[in-house]
């Protein structure tokens, strides 16, 4: 009971583990490329929660700065990935990743 009511580092790591698992599940099982991107964003958020939790309980600033750069990279990644998805849609008329079978127009 003491462990449940006092919010420690394990609580944050548990939430992050759930987000990581759900993100991996989305990447693994979904056919729609957009939902796969959402899974990647969930994984990045899980990593961010871990970084900030360790940074908070360690007292340093390394995790905070790293999570800031993770957010920057996630924005760039989402923009590029959606450009690629829109290109795939123009070529194949669908975003079903299991039906995309050629790399050349």
């Amino acid at each position: 009971m003491e462990q449940l009511t006092t919010i420690g580092i394990n609580h944050y790591l548990t939430i992050s583990a759930f987000l990581l698992g759900f993100g991996l599940f989305a990447v693994m099982t979904r056919k729609n490329a957009i939902v796969i991107l959402m899974g990647v964003e969930l994984i990045l958020n899980a990593a961010n929660i871990n970084f900030l939790a360790f940074s908070k309980f360690n007292g340093g600033m390394g995790g905070v700065m790293f999570s800031l750069f993770v957010i920057v990279l996630a924005a760039a990644e989402a923009a590029i990935a959606l450009a690629i998805v829109i290109n795939i849609f123009k070529l194949f008329k669908s975003v079903d990743v299991s039906s995309i079978d050629s790399m050349k127009e």
Binding site: I49, L52, A74, A79
Partner: peptide
Amino acid sequence: LSADFIAVTQVVVYVGGILVLLLFG
């Protein structure tokens, strides 16, 4: 986790940027 600046950045970048991009997609 006392990272208030990261929280605001998260709302601005993720909700304002990435989520809108995903909805556009």
